[in-house]
Design a protein around this nucleic acid. Sequence first.
DNA 1: CACCAGGCAAGTA
DNA 2: TACTTGCATGGT
Length: 213
Amino acid sequence: MKNNTLLDIYQSLLSCFGPQKWWPGDSPFEVMVGAVLTQNTNWTNVSRAIENLKRENLLSFRVLHELPQEVLAENIRPAGYFNLKANRLKNLLQLIANDYGGNLSDFFSEETSVLRECLLNVKGIGPETADSILLYAAGKPSFVVDTYTHRILSRHGIIPEESSYYDIQEYFVDTLPEDTQLYNEYHALLVRLGKEYCKKGKPLCEECPIKDF
DNA sequence: CACCAGGCAAGTA
DNA sequence: TACTTGCATGGT
């Protein structure tokens, strides 16, 4: 009776782990910054970088936009790739300054597909970072696919190993109801599962809560 | 010591 | 188009 495997998996994960309360962050702006900082990086390192920004009272659009890139880079050093990420954040802030007068609410009020294209046009923002900002900062129903999503589903034989980002996203979007809260919780639960039961280079874990799917 | 972490862009053939 | 490489800190 599994005519909707993804929904069944979701229910299992939710009952196993409970709500994950994502994204960790106090404001949409902080979430957006965190989305860039967490690219290929452990969240604990990102937390340190964000703590630095908070301690120095730098975590606002105006301040960060006016801050020299080198100073920004020093503050986000613990997140790794700090020069690269400082540049990427600057690119994003520049877009918001140029096209939206620095008004984050106006930026996030754009229609989803328009906003997505804007984000993807920023050098340093790819599909996952764009979808993370859309979903967790702007509250749009944009499903986020990450390495855990790909690894979990392919390891369980639910999708082919060679599936692309958009193959996987399409699968979720076509199967699940379009619901921001569902997308939010589902992605967070997959990350939780991935961290605890589906690590890189290991075989399918016998204790995995969804091993029967 | 090696390997990994909530990617992305640029270079090569 | 399909690989490969650079970017970098901190935990295990």
